[in-house]
């Protein structure tokens, strides 16, 4: 992978240049939190932002979108017009989250709705300093080797800019004069020192070895019922988790009734109706069963299939659940581990 250097002071100028590729989006402050927003003014970007409320998945799987238009019984594909866009400021955990969605949506039976949005979007990563809710080091998602077109890493008064794809190379060329190829031994030292400092900032640290087995052996643990007693089944955890991908489909007819649209919208396995089938049988009536499915997906199912957890350690469930049910609590409950400070 090729790397270049960009002066910190030149960042805004470069962000402005990125707009010639497409719409520029990045994290901006919203109250005490952050959201992805269109960067009409590049100086609005919150460079120190940690997790956004909703992860970048919304750019690839919008909360609600039209799949087909139908007239009588004929279904015709309907694709939103996705303009080229640059998503700036993704942290390593979110890039990993995206890679997991790629596996789900692009491997077997590739999903053209996802693919079109993915193809239209350039991913520009940005390094971050974790807070007390980040646990990406435990999930091994605290660094990225791919999944981005460009990745900006803090480097003293500069950024070290990794080029991760040929599109990334094109993006650099939008304003090549700002970049320098001269990476000195001194820069490497600064970079490594920064990495060490940054990696030491993870306050949450868990050993996830054998997690699938632990989940399996804890299937009947009273913990699930205890958590279920508290859970409000609100589904917020699914909305904010970068690797929750469940959705519902419904046909919405126009007033004429012989035409309409087939829509896809986010769903959560925490919702009571999630596994309800015709005739009223519910395969997961009990809240504890639904919690187990959620955490099986995060800590077990994906490891069994892909050798890594589908939790990328972003900390959003920790930030969001109104009753403090989150992946860290569940891991603690399952392993009896103390938080290592």
């Amino acid at each position: 992978m090729k790397a270049l250097k960009l002066k910190r002071d030149d960042l805004y100028t470069y962000l402005e240049s990125l707009k010639s590729y497409g719409e520029l989006w990045g994290p901006v402050a919203k109250g005490e939190k952050y959201v992805y927003a269109r960067l009409t003014n590049v100086r609005d970007v919150a460079l120190g932002a940690l997790r956004t409320i909703i992860p970048p998945k919304k750019f690839f799987v919008p909360p609600r979108f039209t799949m087909f238009r139908y007239t009588d019984d004929h279904y015709a594909e309907s694709f939103d017009d996705v303009k080229p866009r640059v998503l700036f400021g993704l942290h390593p955990c979110d890039i990993h989250g995206l890679l997991i969605l790629d596996e789900l949506f692009l491997e077997r039976f590739p999903d053209p709705y996802y693919k079109r949005r993915r193809d239209a979007t350039a991913i520009v990563g940005l390094s971050c300093i974790p807070d007390d809710k980040c646990m990406a080091r435990s999930t091994n998602t605290h660094a990225v080797e791919g999944g981005f077109d460009l990745a900006f890493n803090e480097l003293g008064n500069n950024y070290l800019v990794w080029i991760g794809s040929s599109l990334g190379d094109d993006l650099v060329r939008l304003n090549l004069d700002l970049f320098s190829e001269d990476i000195e031994p001194e820069d490497l030292k600064t970079y490594l020192a920064w990495r060490r400092k940054r990696d030491s900032r993870y306050k949450l640290s868990f050993d996830l070895t054998g997690m699938p087995d632990i989940m399996e052996l804890s299937w009947d643990s009273p913990m699930w019922n205890e958590l279920a007693e508290k859970c409000l089944a609100c589904g917020s955890c699914s909305m904010v988790c970068p690797t929750c991908n469940c959705y519902n489909v419904r046909d919405v007819s126009d007033l004429t009734l012989n035409s309409g649209v087939r829509e896809r919208h986010w769903d959560s396995c925490m919702n009571k109706e999630y596994a309800l089938v015709a005739g009223g049988h519910n395969f997961r009536e009990a809240r504890a069963e639904r919690l187990k499915l959620w955490y099986t997906h995060k800590l077990k199912a994906f490891i069994t299939e892909y050798g890594k957890p589908s939790c990328v350690g972003c900390g959003r469930c920790i930030d969001t659940c109104p009753v403090d049910i989150n992946v860290a609590e569940v891991i603690r409950g399952l392993t009896g581990q103390k938080v290592t400070l």
């Binding site: 949506f105 959705y247 489909v249 769903d267 077990k300």
Partner: peptide, 24 residues
């Protein structure tokens, strides 16, 4: 076996049972 299904191809998540999808 029967489960609720919204896609049939391992995307919507509804038919998940532990690590597997009933539809796939």
């Amino acid at each position: 076996l029967e489960r609720r299904m919204h896609c049939g191809i391992g995307k919507c998540g509804h038919c998940a049972i532990g690590p597997i999808y009933t539809c796939l």
